[in-house]
Design a protein around this nucleic acid. Structure first.
Lengths: 64, 64
DNA sequence: CCCGTATGTAAAGCACACTTTACGTATCCT
DNA sequence: AGGATACGTAAAGTGTGCTTTACATACGGG
């Protein structure tokens, strides 16, 4: 699962810490998501989607 | 997180077992999702979304 | 009555999503 | 040089997503 989190975060000039705070998760979680270490839960994916005002499908793309 | 899985499955006249097979998960997983025992992983949410040809947002709605 | 199908649920186990604490490196500013 | 900020990562712990096996109930068709 690829995602555009880092790209979107940088467009907003937010640090990982800033984004983490806005999402209510730890900075390490944001880092892990950006680096593709794991996928977010569905609720967290919705939070990200709402924060960036984009559809989940516009932020996350399944591998194949 | 509410979802319309049962409704969509029934529209297609599929048993939980049928749906599970199409999604590549166990019947118990489909049952648990329909009954709201837990949310699917993001990859599984995408599989469901593709199977029913609907956006994730049209199948899953965050509680608040 | 029996059999097959559909559904709900439980227990045990594994992998992953996420946390806190902590440490390392790089960069920038004074 | 020193301090602040940003990022990457590791280890240990908790809870959840999903599996397999298994059992129970209900229904419909022979």
């Amino acid at each position: 699962m690829n995602n555009r989190i880092q790209e979107l975060r940088q467009e907003h000039d937010w640090s990982q810490k800033d984004l983490a705070r806005r999402l209510g998760v730890s900075r390490q979680t944001v880092n892990a998501l950006e680096r593709g270490r794991y996928d977010p839960s569905l609720p967290l994916a919705f939070s990200i989607s709402k924060l960036f005002a984009l559809a989940i499908e516009d932020i996350f793309q399944p591998e194949s």
